[in-house]
Write a protein that binds this DNA or RNA. Structure first.
Lengths: 208, 208
DNA sequence: GGTTGAAATTGATCGCTGGTCAATATATTT
DNA sequence: AAATATATTGACCAGCGATCAATTTCAACC
C-alpha cells in the first residue's frame, strides 16, 4: 500500500481532471464526488487529496481548463471581416461551445468558493483573455485613443452574450427563441447604434 | 414528543422560509443546511421534512419568494416616462435588488434541481411576470401587431440585464465599471438602434 | 366525557459525503 | 546497505440529507 509509480504526478493530475470533466459533463457539478473521481482513475481518495488541496481546488482547475477550451473554440473565429461579422462569428463559436458542453460551462458560474477564498491569478487571466477577443472584434468601430469606450462597449456585449447563453442553457427561452437569435439582434442593433453615435460625435461622451 | 400547536402549518412554513432566507443572505446557498433551518425555528429536522418534500423543494419555494420580492421592487418603477426612461428605471430597481441581496438573488440561478426534476408551474409564472415588466416598458417602440418583435427585443434586453447583474455580483467587473453603467449604454444605444430600424422600415424583418 | 382516528413531532438511524492522518510501502539519496 | 523522502492507502471523523417507527397531542364523534 504505497508508491506505485504507475504515473507521474503530472499524469495523475491529468487523469483526475479528465475524470472530473467527464463526470461534470454527464451529471453536472452537483454530481461531482471526490470518491468517484478517485475510483475512476484507479486510486484512492487519499491520493486525490495529495494532488489537490480539496474539491474546490480541483474544480477551479477543471473550470480553468474549460475556459481554455472555450478560448480555443472562440479563437477559431475569423477576425478580419468587419465588426458585425467578427462579433457574430465569435458569439456563434461561444454559443456552440455552451450548447455542446452546457454542464461544463455552467460549472464555471455555478461554483462558488467558500467565503473568503478567491480564485488564483491565472484564473482571472483566462477570463480576461476571452473578453479581449470581443474587444478586438469591436475595435475597428473606435478611433485610436478611445480605449476606455472600446472596453466599455465590448463589456456590454460580452456580459449580454453571457446572459443569453446562461438563460438558454438553463432552459429559460421559449419555443422558437434561441440565444443565437437574441445575440444576432444585439450585435446588429447595438453596433449600428454605436456607429450612429460615432458619426454624430456623441461617442466622445464619457461612460460616466 | 409530538404536536405542539405552537404554530400552524402556515406559520411553520413562513418561519422555515424566513430562516432559510436569512441563512442564504448571510452564507449563500452553499451554507444552507436543513439542520440549521430546523434549529433556527426551534423544531427538529423531522418537522422540516414534514413541511417540505426535501431541501430542493424548500429552496424552490425560497427562490419563488425572492422572485416575488424582486417583482415587487421592480414594480415600483414608473411606467409612463417613455421607453428609455422606463427601461432605465426598471433596470435600476433590478440592479439595486441584486446589490442589496446578492446571495439571495444568486441562489435563483445557482440552484439546479437534480436530473429529471423540473420547477413547478407557479415558479415559471413568477419568472415570466418579470419579463412582462420589461416588455411593457419597451412596448411604445412597436406598433400594434408586432408582438413577436416586441417580445424578442424585450428578451434581448432582459437577458442582457441578467448577464450584467450576474457578472457584477460575481465580482467580474473591473474598478470603475458597474452594471448600471453597462446597462445604461445598452438601453440608450439599443433602443436608439431600434427606433432607427423602425423609421427605416427595417423592423418588419422577421427575427428568424 | 370518553373513545377513536388523524396529524404532528421527535430523534435514532442510514448511507453517504468531504476531508484527515498514522501507517506502510516504495523510490531515491547517501 | 542504510537512511531519507515521497507516494499511497484506508480506517476514521464529523457532518450531511433523508427516513420512519414510536410517541404525543389535537379534533371529531358518540
Amino acid at each position: 500500500m504505497a508508491r506505485r509509480s504507475d504515473h507521474t504526478r503530472e499524469e495523475l493530475n491529468r487523469m483526475a481532471l479528465d475524470a472530473a470533466r467527464r463526470i461534470t459533463e454527464r451529471e453536472g457539478l452537483r454530481g461531482l464526488r471526490a470518491r468517484q473521481i478517485a475510483r475512476d482513475i484507479g486510486y484512492t481518495i487519499g491520493t486525490l487529496y495529495n494532488l489537490f488541496e480539496d474539491l474546490d481546488d480541483l474544480i477551479v482547475h477543471m473550470n480553468g481548463e474549460t475556459l481554455d477550451a472555450l478560448f480555443e473554440a472562440c479563437s477559431q473565429a475569423p477576425t478580419d471581416e468587419g465588426p458585425e461579422a467578427d462579433l457574430s462569428a465569435l458569439a456563434e463559436r461561444y454559443l456552440q461551445f455552451t450548447r455542446v458542453h452546457p454542464k461544463l460551462w455552467n460549472a464555471i458560474f455555478e461554483h462558488k468558493l467558500p467565503e473568503g477564498r478567491t480564485t488564483p491569478e491565472w484564473y482571472a487571466e483566462k477570463v480576461a483573455r476571452l473578453l479581449l477577443l470581443e474587444q478586438n472584434a469591436l475595435a475597428p468601430i473606435f478611433p485610436e485613443g478611445q480605449e476606455k469606450q472600446l472596453q466599455h462597449h465590448a463589456r456590454v456585449l460580452w456580459t449580454s452574450l453571457f446572459g443569453m447563453a446562461s438563460v438558454e442553457t438553463a432552459g429559460g427561452l421559449p419555443e422558437g427563441e434561441t440565444a443565437d437569435s437574441l445575440v444576432r439582434s444585439l450585435i446588429e442593433i447595438y453596433v449600428s447604434g454605436l456607429r450612429q453615435m460615432d458619426t454624430s460625435g456623441a461617442s466622445l461622451q464619457t461612460t460616466r
